[in-house]
Amino acid sequence: MTTMTMARAINEGLRVAMDADSKVVLFGQDIGRLGGVFRVTDGLQKDFGEHRVMDAPLAESGIVGTAIGLAMRGYRPVIEIQFEAFVYPAFDQIVSQVAKMHRRSAGTVRLPMVMRMPYGGGIGAVEHHSESPEAYFVHTAGLRVLTPSDPQSAYLTIQQAIACEDPVIYLEPKRRYWDKGEVDLDTTLGNTGLLSPWRARIMRPGTDVSVIAYGPMVRTCLEAAEAADGVALEVIDLQSLSPLDLATVVESVERTGRAVIVHEASRTAGLGAEIAAQIAERCFYSLEAPVQRVTGYDVPYPASRLEEDFLPDLDRVLTAVDRVMED
């Protein structure tokens, strides 16, 4: 076990993938000498060369569009979008081309590309640097979506994303980049066992309420579980948002009879809506209380001095827990 930050763990995962396959190339703004604005690609251009770690012009549609061509030519592009809200200029390429190519070509064209981007708030940033756009991508058939919550999960999920034959949106919770954790650098994709990146992880077992989260909110929910008085919270980290590991969620909710779903993204038509619907369909007779969602509000992400009022926090999670326990 080695202690490292999530940013470092992603960097290590990228190294493993680049060592294993010379077709893996990185492409993005300021990822070379600068190492990316969050230093996730630090040192990779130096170690792998400018032909494998390429600084791109400032055009996101250009980056994704050309990555499609590279993938058609047999490369495995891992692109970096500097901040989540700058993926929107590339939205057309992602939704209309990346997501549909495999189907349109009747399976002959695979696009094993990874679109990495930091997402989420809580770092006091200016506008367009704190959003949570995951629902757009989960809603788009043809894309897979992964999001790590800690260094160990990051180390494995980034490798899984690169190994995957489908295009993967890889969302990095930026406020957790500097959180440290233990990483087993010897686990490889082949020997992960139950650590499969496509599976949800039960981060803390509990008997009373299933708290379902992903990315930046996993730590918040673990803190809530620690603080909860007389209630045993089971905290689930989804890791994979598309596909959702419903088996793990359903098994947990059937045991606890209560579910709280937590995400930073706005509520309406967010991931929580889908998960709540699935729980209603599959666990209706096990439920002791209506499912609760703790989310950002249906407003544009506010200026940073107000972001704490927008983001779910420990208090809001515990308030929802109280509510499901009342019923």
């Binding site: 407003v299 107000l306 009022d309």
Partner: peptide, 20 residues
């Protein structure tokens, strides 16, 4: 002045929006 927390709901729409 730091705006009041509830102001995050201001001006999202020009017209009344029932859900918000």
């Amino acid at each position: 002045p730091v705006p009041e927390a509830v102001s995050i709901f201001d001006h999202v729409y020009a017209e009344e929006h029932s859900l918000l």
